[in-house]
Design a protein around this nucleic acid. Sequence first.
RNA 1: GCGCCUGUAGCUCAGCUGGAUAGAGCAACGGACUUCUAAUCCGUGGGUCGAGAGUUCGAAUCCCUCCAGGCGCACCA
Length: 554
Amino acid sequence: MKQALVRLLEKSIQAGIEQKVLPPPVPTRIEVELTKDPGHGDYASNIAMVLAKQAKKNPREIAKILSERIEDRDGLLEKVEIAGPGFLNFFVRQAGFARLLGDVHRQGERYGSSDLGKGRRVQIEYVSANPTGPLHIGHARGAVVGDVMANILDAVGFKVFREYYINDAGNQMNNLGKSVLLRYRELLGETVEFSEGCYRGEYIRELASELRKRDGDRYIREKPEDLIPRFTEFAAGAILEGIQEDLRIFGCVFDRYFSERELYRDDGVGKLLGELEEKGFIYREEGTLWFRTTAFGDEKDRVVVRQNGDPTYFAADIAYHLNKFQRGFESVIDIWGADHHGYIPRMSAAVQALGYEKDALKVILVQLVNLLREGKPVAMSTRSGEFVTLREVVDEVGKDAARYNFLMRRSDSHLDFDLEIAKKQSNENPVYYVQYAHARICSILRIAAERGYTVPAYDRADLSLLQLPEEVDLVKAVTRFPEVLEGAARSLEPHRVTFYLNDLAGLFHSYYNKNKVISDDAALTGARLFLCRSVLTVLQNALKILGVSAPEKM
RNA sequence: GCGCCUGUAGCUCAGCUGGAUAGAGCAACGGACUUCUAAUCCGUGGGUCGAGAGUUCGAAUCCCUCCAGGCGCACCA
């Protein structure tokens, strides 16, 4: 509907230009919005005010010129009014709205999707937690934001690739192996001391005892230098398997888990740094290699190879991002914890130095989660290994509530996650509000069927009977869905889908309480069933994108 | 000290990229189940959009200056 109105406006501006009452050109962006106040019609455009400056005319005068030249061939509009400083208010005929439900009917589970992305390839990297311990609640938010963002981009026509970067090459891996070895020795009766950087979580103890069960005490005679790599290998493998399992249970499935080690194969990182040095982006100073990130606006240059010869994490990350682009992705999205925001300028600099557009890399920052129980903070300390794992949260509150809760805020704002509220099956928990709307419609359709009503086909339903204000509002909301997905994709803001769902469910609950869908009037019942079915389709499609189930009964 | 993010109703937050009288949920109060599911709905009250100046037809939104909070400022990842 919005787009149809934009086209009408384009044509009327065109006509105005041809008749020399408006100066060219036709603006590239014409805004049409849903109105808040029914007195302002259904849709409104501010285009007359936008044109006022270049046309050097009073906005109301321009509005008049435009409204006189609108050729409504399809009979969508009842009338067009000029209001306030120069708004064009469109009053859509009821039949115009009802027609839109035909799209829902025809497209079914594809309703809402579009070809905004035109099949362009996007890679989206998220979670990417080091395999040094199980995922905790902090990782969960990034996982959901990434997963849902990917679903949204997929829906609007991008070809999406989901990836998890495994940081399995740094010295933290060494610490992991060392930590397990120490616990292993402890199990065999030695007294051990944990140095700085060691991991002390309970899971380390479990890994050690697993090793002991499997291989007994035969490692006790070997040298630590020989043992640590093997212990590391074992621990990282086991932990990564656990991470993958947790993510799967949480509904996050990746196309690929990319190992950092792969970047070092055949001295890949070294060669890349050499190339960048030839191009002048890297220089040597006091025995270290520096990347000239200041050339692209970073506040200082960054080390890529330390004095001791080891490449930094940043060096590998440059290679990783080059690898992404070389695999043919036109656009790359990284999802990071907000505490890494300082890392953006250097990564952006690297991407530009590699010869790609600045816009080719986009970063979504996800703020930390405050875990609460009945309003009181739950203590978490990664160092000591006291934290609530993702698995524990999913087990306690369920996948649906957990996922929905992480999508109720903009990603870059802090989020309080209260375990007790998330668990409650009450009105404090919005996920049930939406699911309940779905279950209610299912129930209506069931009972309608029992009474001999079926949802009519689009051309058999008399949708002109849908005249109540609540019905028009519902139709409007249904038609907003594709726009919401596009907006969420454009702005990289998955929370918009959640807010939209709350609105839609609210409109339905309100309608439901006031009106009967099933009545003795067969034609009216048919029209209302058709409307219900349309709402149901949107609820299902949207919930699917969020990775939240749509129960038929509650 | 520098940089980024945040500041909107008592609380938690939206505000569609500058539009018309700033919204929702909780909490408070008052109502609605003999009905297609009350995990719902209807109503009432509640605001100096952190403060100040600026840009223009028009600002919660954009620019500048302050104030408050968070996070960064490694040859860690």
